[in-house]
């Protein structure tokens, strides 16, 4: 891969992305259009996150990639390998060791520090898209802060189901201004959007970059009589016993037996290495 530039992208492309990142940080939650490039992996597979990572990585970084909370999911492996090859960066599976973390669908359980950056892969950056398919319209709605439609949608959920029926990609309002899609993270992760770390969001196919600076107010939309609830499976992790981490439900036998394990693989491993254990830890090792 030596024929390619440091971190794959050419310098002019990186500058274009960097300028978009700065505007994104200056207007938190606003989606900055950028001339997304065709990457050597498919659109929808993290090209936005990959372009943002390529624009921010330095040789000193230690890079972590997670998909569904795990480092060993195939697409995470593939993206990590891409940057090992093209940027020569060190990689890690440990959240606390990473300086840049690219993620799909999760925020790590371990609170992030000021010297870390979280890069999200975003499929559909427009939180209003499923209410209004036209970009020309949604852009107008953002400019006028016309977010009534979103509240109507959430309220319709309540009248039909008795509760807000959005469980992931749950919309948030950033710094009291823009309604933002936090990418398809489970709503359990929404409170972690208020962080010490810089959070950058890249949508390659949709050509948008947006950002949440550290210590920025991020409020999940809700109603007084139906407050926002970050929910998870009502279990403890069967491997490490954690009661406060997001869980994957795994079918373990033909009879449909289940076990619940931490989605954040590093968090779970860390706890087990520290001697914690869950209900099924012994039976499985």
């Amino acid at each position: 891969m030596n024929a390619y530039n440091f971190a794959y992208l050419d310098e002019q492309t990186k500058r274009m992305i960097r300028r978009a990142i700065l505007k994104g940080l200056a207007v938190p939650g606003y989606q900055v259009p950028f001339a997304s490039r065709e990457m050597p992996m498919p659109y929808g597979w993290g090209t936005g996150g990959v372009q943002v990572s390529a624009a921010i990585l330095t040789p000193e970084d230690r890079f972590k990639v997670i998909d569904q909370g795990a480092d060993d999911t195939t697409n995470a492996v593939s993206i990590r390998k891409f940057f090992e090859r093209t940027a020569g960066v060190a990689v890690t599976e440990r959240t606390i060791e990473a300086s840049v973390i690219q993620t799909r669908h999760r925020i790590p359980e371990t609170p992030l520090r000021a010297d870390q950056i979280l890069v999200y892969q975003v499929p559909i950056p427009e939180p209003l898209r499923f209410l209004e398919p036209r970009e020309t319209e949604t852009r107008k709605m953002h400019s006028l802060q016309e977010y009534g439609l979103m509240h109507v949608k959430l309220y319709e959920d309540i009248s039909r189901h008795g509760a807000i029926a959005t469980s992931y990609a749950y919309p948030v309002r950033v710094a009291g201004r823009y309604v933002m899609d936090p990418s398809p993270i489970p709503k359990f992760d929404n409170p972690k959007l208020e962080s010490e770390a810089i959070q950058l969001f890249g949508a390659g196919r949709e050509q948008r970059i947006y950002a949440v600076p550290p210590h920025t107010r991020v409020v999940s939309l809700d109603f007084e009589d139906h407050p926002f609830e970050p929910t998870k499976a009502e279990h403890d992790c069967d491997l490490c016993g954690a009661a406060d981490s997001y869980l994957d439900e795994v079918i373990i036998d033909d009879a449909g037996g289940r076990m619940f394990v931490c989605s954040d693989a590093d968090f779970c491993r860390g706890r087990r290495e520290a001697g914690q254990s869950g209900a099924k830890a012994g039976a499985l090792s």
Partner: peptide, 15 residues
């Protein structure tokens, strides 16, 4: 790309 990306794991959201 977008069509085929739904092959990727989505079990966190499904959960």
């Amino acid at each position: 790309g977008f069509l085929e990306h739904i092959k990727l794991p989505h079990y966190v959201d499904f959960q």
